[in-house]
């Protein structure tokens, strides 16, 4: 939770499991076969938390941090595509909008991506179900699983990020 990882190695699989209201942000650069994954917990950082050294934990600081980490692998911002996973509302008793952290997280990450001019290709967000995401930089493979269901697999192999299989 609140961590980020990037990879350009074919054998690496970046994983975050059991996303509820948290958001998994995937950045892919298919031209260089690099990928990044961050586990976003809260929509907004505060001056207090910004000094805590966990930029990936907050939607308003995660995008520059992940873009920076991808940059160190040689990926330019203009080549990046984004995938959003998570941001569910797991409990019915959470009625007050200010307590619905899930949708606030999705909105805040989407805003930050728009500001950075990074297009969102896939968004499997909202609802009331937990999700996991696994990413392999090589071939831009992304597997997303919702609780109790099979993986849905997406790939950039065809040039566009699209669903290639489930199972």
């Amino acid at each position: 939770m609140g961590e980020l990882a990037v990879s350009g190695a074919a054998k690496d699989v970046l994983t975050t499991i059991g996303l509820g209201s948290c958001v998994g942000l995937v950045l892919l650069d298919s031209s260089r076969s690099t990928a990044g994954l961050a586990h976003v917990v809260y929509p907004h950082s505060t001056p207090d938390t910004r000094s805590g050294g966990q930029p990936a934990k907050y939607a308003d600081t995660v995008v520059p941090a992940l873009v920076g980490a991808m940059g160190r692998l040689g990926s330019l911002r203009g080549a990046l595509e984004a995938v959003l996973v998570g941001g569910a509302r797991m409990f019915a008793f959470v009625r007050a909008p200010e307590l619905d952290i899930g949708s606030a997280n999705v909105d805040a990450v989407a805003r930050a991506l728009a500001q950075a001019e990074i297009p969102i290709r896939i968004s499997l967000t909202g609802g009331s179900i937990g999700r996991s995401v696994r990413v392999r930089a090589a071939g831009g493979l992304i597997a997303i699983r919702e609780a109790g269901t099979a993986n849905r697999v997406y790939s950039t192999a065809g040039g566009l990020l699209e669903e290639v299989a489930s199972g």
Partner: peptide
């Protein structure tokens, strides 16, 4: 206590979301 609610879902998703609510 207020009325209970039951959720059947991934453990990490359920707990993290519950613990993060306010």
């Amino acid at each position: 206590p207020t009325p209970p609610e039951m959720v059947r879902d991934m453990l990490a998703a359920t707990l993290a979301s519950a613990l993060l609510i306010d």
